[in-house]
């Protein structure tokens, strides 16, 4: 059995499909809006790409560490309880069974998804700034490119949720874009208060 098949089996045995999907969407959504806030906030004061990258990197490392550890600790506890319930119902210890392996492996898979998804979102959004640092693209419009990438990620997440709930994926995608626009409007108003 290949690694991917085994991962799928462990996820299925521990009934973690929904939780993993939620972790992925929630964290990518959080990181997309967080990065949008960082680049928007910094854009009002400076156009130095290194500051955007440093601020995003700091926030992303913190989100990654927090995402990995919090998901792992909480899921280990959940899966232990789930395994105990099954063992109690079966009136036997399921030693060396797939259930035991799955209950140990699933929290690791979930922690990785919870930790990595915000990193991917943030990395994609600040990629124009990174490309600019390496001299691959000019500094003009990198802010706009990042905004467009952030909006695209949010649209994709909304569309993905729309697909899950059998809704119109375009409407669902535009709904998340509206949330991003609302965030940007708040940041824009805040910029007038001289707080940004």
């Amino acid at each position: 059995m290949g690694i991917l098949e085994r991962i799928k089996l462990y996820i299925s045995i521990t009934e973690s499909e929904d939780i993993i999907r939620r972790y992925f969407v929630n964290n990518t959504f959080d990181s997309a809006l967080m990065t949008l806030g960082i680049i928007f906030g910094i854009h009002t004061t400076t156009s130095d790409p290194r500051i955007v990258i440093a601020a995003t990197l700091g926030a992303t490392v913190a989100t990654f560490t927090s995402g990995m550890t919090s998901a792992y600790l909480s899921e280990v506890a959940e899966k232990k309880a789930q395994l105990k319930e099954i063992q109690d119902a079966m009136l036997t210890k399921l030693t060396k069974s797939l259930q035991v392996q799955a209950s140990k492996t699933a929290p690791i898979i979930m922690a990785v998804v919870n930790g990595i998804s915000p990193v991917i979102g943030a990395a994609l959004i600040i990629s124009p700034y990174i490309l600019n640092i390496f001299g691959i693209i000019p500094a003009t419009n990198i802010f706009i490119y990042s905004l467009l990438i952030a909006l695209s990620i949010l649209f994709f997440l909304g569309a993905f949720l729309g697909k899950v709930s059998n809704e119109n994926i375009f409407l669902a995608g535009f709904r998340t874009i509206l949330i991003a626009l609302l965030t940007m409007a708040i940041l824009f108003l805040l910029s007038y208060t001289k707080l940004l």
Binding site: S12, I13, E15, A89, Q99
Partner: peptide, 11 residues
């Protein structure tokens, strides 16, 4: 046999 719901009988 007695089994948990997952894996299912297909597996």
């Amino acid at each position: 046999i007695l089994k948990p719901h997952r894996p299912n009988i297909l597996k």
